[in-house]
């Protein structure tokens, strides 16, 4: 029998802590596939943030540093400056990057740190039980916005990919989605492009993945994919917001 699909070697054969239906696993697989294809696994170091992404080391057979909440871009900065020949990626959720870690992400990006950040935007704090995040959609009910997010009291959902694209140090900023095979394929290309930016020393690269959290959204996995398509994408448009082509840093 011909195998048409299999687990990439750089994804450990183990049980997952992610809920059934969660798209974190897809993002993990894409990164693992690209690391394998680019043959950079043994020189890659991962820095997960705090939250559902923290167990990165359970799934990737690579060196891992566990960063404090929101601080992965600062840890990545120190590590990349110490080891410019290694591939350093941070992996952050939306509470981690877009709330507590805004200072660290903006300044790492603005300095043009030659690192890659993978950003899972699922509009809620997942691991702590589905509280409102800066990325929560208007009207979206969470455990801490039980009447729905109201722009008058909680402000508007924050668009990280667009915001970071305004900074000169950013080489690549894109938003992709994980709800359909077509979009997953596009997301993989973005992962590859981001890591290529780092290998080519182009500066800071960031991939925002629109992801699902069916558990905390209180919907089925299939319904969650529809929510992503019908409610997230209209507010968070997909696309490339910045792509550096030369080594011109200004």
């Amino acid at each position: 029998m011909n195998a048409v699909f299999k687990r990439p070697p750089t994804l450990k054969d183990t049980y997952t802590h992610f809920c059934p239906g969660c798209t974190h696993g897809i993002a993990h697989r894409l990164i693992a596939e690209v690391l394998d294809e680019m043959q950079i696994v043994d020189k890659t170091i991962g820095i997960p943030g705090v939250g559902c992404c923290v167990f990165l080391y359970n799934y990737f057979p690579i060196d891992v540093l566990e960063a404090p909440h929101g601080r992965a871009p600062a840890c990545a900065t120190g590590m990349k400056r110490a080891q410019p020949d290694k591939i350093i990626f941070a992996y952050q959720g939306d509470g981690d990057m877009a709330a507590i870690g805004t200072s660290e992400i903006i300044h790492a990006a603005n300095r043009g740190e030659n690192v890659t950040v993978f950003f899972i935007n699922n509009t809620v704090y997942g691991m702590t039980g589905g509280q409102m995040a800066p990325t929560t959609l208007l009207g979206q009910q969470t455990t801490t916005s039980p009447y729905g997010r109201n722009f008058q009291t909680e402000g508007y959902p924050i668009k990280m990919a667009e915001m970071l694209a305004t900074l000169e140090g950013v080489a690549y900023s894109t938003r992709v989605a994980l709800h359909s095979p077509k979009h997953v394929n596009q997301a993989k290309k973005a992962v590859r492009k981001a890591l290529e930016m780092q290998i080519n020393e182009m500066g800071f690269s960031m991939v925002e993945f629109l992801s699902t959290c069916n558990t905390n959204w209180r919907v089925s996995p299939l319904e969650a994919l529809k929510v992503l398509e019908n409610e997230m994408i209209p507010y968070y448009p997909l696309g490339v917001f910045k792509e550096r082509t030369g080594k011109d840093f200004l």
């Binding site: 820095i47 540093l65 960063a67 404090p68 601080r71 600062a74 840890c75 990545a76 900065t77 120190g78 590590m79 990349k80 400056r81 110490a82 080891q83 200072s103 660290e104 903006i106 300044h107």
Partner: peptide, 16 residues
């Protein structure tokens, strides 16, 4: 950008 970032950059270099 801050002392928070400073100590975490130290952490990244130290881990290296």
């Amino acid at each position: 950008e801050s002392e928070i970032a400073s100590i975490n950059m130290v952490m990244g270099a130290s881990a290296s």
